[in-house]
Design a protein around this nucleic acid. Structure first.
Length: 468
RNA sequence: GGCUCCGUAGCUCAGGUGGCAGAGCGGCGGCUUGUUAAGCCGAAGGUCGCAGGUUCGAUCCCUGCCGGAGCCGCCA
């Protein structure tokens, strides 16, 4: 075919009169007997939210035999020229001079993604086809946009992208249950003399798991390259059944040297604002859809976050605020206990109605590597809470003092010898440093207003859910 | 891991205290229309998640299993 192939995003922006061809999947088809007979085909190729209206007239050789048989999901290639639309609803449309069917839908009556509204629960069961719906197409483009914006932000601020391992032999921060990685034959396990499983015979010669965090590894590069980050898959074998948890998710973990908790919070705030701003600018089409159909008000909510400083509050102050709240909580609030979901939501949704950064938590409820404050009761930790999703970022200044860190590892009951290389960092040129972890899917949830985290990742993995 | 709820046509759902099932949308046929959540008419489409049990009789009651959802906990 001699004609240029334009993506639908390009076609919609082309000048009237341009001749080109497009390729995509039929969203809907409507027929009219006016003007001697013609059909309107909404064609989408995923390059933008909108579809292109292709007008196919009876004069086409295959009008009766093929055009009139098109249904949602058929793959077609159409060529013609762009004309000002004679109808309402779109500025331009493609007046087709030829239309070829590339792939039919075998059983239109049972095509899983027919031209009607489907529940997200149902679409999860046909995850291989749900990308063809406007919602999941929009989610995919938003994910991409945010990913790119994240890398751009870090690149602009002199951060290096470090690829930390997926398979790990250390139980890092004890961040949760881990998935075992093994090549041993489960039906015939090698045993040691005392009857234990002999992991010396396993692939790595020791127990290995999928990573629950790249933080400990990335700290090593932080203390050499100053500003680094990871952005990769993370695995938690927790039996979590909520709309905010996945067994496999993506996490962004920046780590900055010569920095304290304040610098860490500042980074988190700049970072979030920057990528939200990029999203609102570059994906205005998809965001308008989420604002209209999924979560009325998301766009202005995100806009407000970009424009306003975050609210900062210490854990101790947060406990006071919760104590003063004129409402009942299922769980009592007392100093020393971790904040419950209801408490976090009260703070960022009701009390302040904006992102809230809670700092300086009791050391007992936080990880061993977080820097002990001078009061010896709290650590330099921070959580960023946002409406609806709750904790979207968790971070801290790291304990850089060798003796204190060793003490904290002992208190946590962790095997000190497993952390020899992590402790080495405190022996050789230690320096104050800090970082945080951002759950990518929670970010996408927050940005789109999608209620369930399983609907913002292409193929969700959760307890009893690993199809596709 | 705890608590709660759900599983009826391709999809979304209705089916008062048991008597062999309905609607809307989709798909199909027709009419109308430069249409766009199109409109009107018509026909088709269901072993009421699976397996047992109670009963003269079960979509409806009981038990188990399978699948799904929500909230809480764990956290990102």
């Amino acid at each position: 075919m001699a004609m240029d192939w334009l993506k639908i995003r390009e076609a919609l922006a082309a000048p009237v009169g341009t001749a080109f061809c497009v390729k995509g999947w039929v969203r809907t088809r409507r027929d009219s007997k006016a003007d001697g007979g013609l059909s309107f085909i909404a064609l989408g190729d995923g390059t933008c939210f909108d579809s292109l209206q292709v007008v196919a007239r009876r004069e086409l050789a295959n009008y009766e035999s093929e055009v009139l048989r098109l249904t949602a999901g058929c793959a077609v290639e159409a060529e013609g020229s762009l004309v000002a639309s004679a109808g309402k609803g779109q500025a331009v449309e493609l007046a087709a001079t030829e239309l070829r069917v590339l792939g039919w839908v075998e059983n239109p009556d049972s095509y899983p993604v027919s031209a009607k509204r489907h529940s997200f629960e149902y679409l999860r069961e046909v995850a291989h086809l749900r990308a063809r719906t406007n919602t999941f197409g929009a989610v995919a483009r938003v994910r991409h946009c945010l990913s790119v914006a994240i890398h751009e932000f870090f690149d602009r601020h002199d951060f290096y992208y470090i690829h930390t391992p997926i398979i790990t032999a250390s139980d890092c921060e004890g961040a949760g249950e881990m998935f075992r990685v093994s090549t041993l034959d489960l039906l015939d396990l090698p045993r040691t003399a005392d009857g234990q499983v002999d992991f010396d015979k396993d692939f790595f010669g020791r127990e290995a798991h999928l990573t629950v965090s790249g933080q400990l590894n990335v700290e090593t590069y932080c203390l050499a390259l100053s500003r680094v980050y990871t952005f990769g898959p993370t695995f938690r074998a927790e039996n979590s059944n909520t709309s905010r948890h996945l067994s496999e998710f993506w996490m962004i973990e920046p780590e900055i040297a010569f920095a304290d908790l304040d610098a860490d919070i500042e980074l988190a705030e700049d970072f979030l604002k920057s990528i939200l701003d990029v999203l609102l600018t570059r994906r205005a089409d998809d965001m308008a859809f989420f604002d209209q159909r999924v979560d009325p008000g998301v766009v202005s909510r995100l806009r407000g976050i970009v424009d306003k400083p975050f609210r900062r509050i210490s854990y101790t102050e947060a406990v006071d605020e919760l104590g003063k709240a004129k409402r009942d909580f299922e769980f009592a609030v007392e100093w020393g206990a971790d904040l419950q979901s209801e408490h976090e939501r009260y703070l960022c949704e009701e009390r302040f109605d904006q992102p809230v950064v809670v700092t300086d938590y009791p050391k007992e409820i936080k990880a061993f590597y977080m820097r002990l404050n001078d009061d010896h009761r709290t650590v330099a930790a921070m959580d960023v809470l946002v409406p609806r999703v709750g904790e979207i970022i968790g971070g801290s200044q790291r304990e850089e003092r060798l003796a204190v860190l060793e003490q904290r590892i002992r208190e946590a009951g962790l095997p000190e010898k497993d952390y020899w290389w992590y402790l080495d960092l405190r022996r050789y040129g230690t320096v104050p440093h800090a970082g945080f972890g951002l759950g990518f899917e929670r970010l996408v949830q927050f940005c789109t207003g999608m209620a369930n985290i399983r609907d913002v990742i292409p193929f969700p993995r959760a307890p009893r859910q690993a199809e596709f």
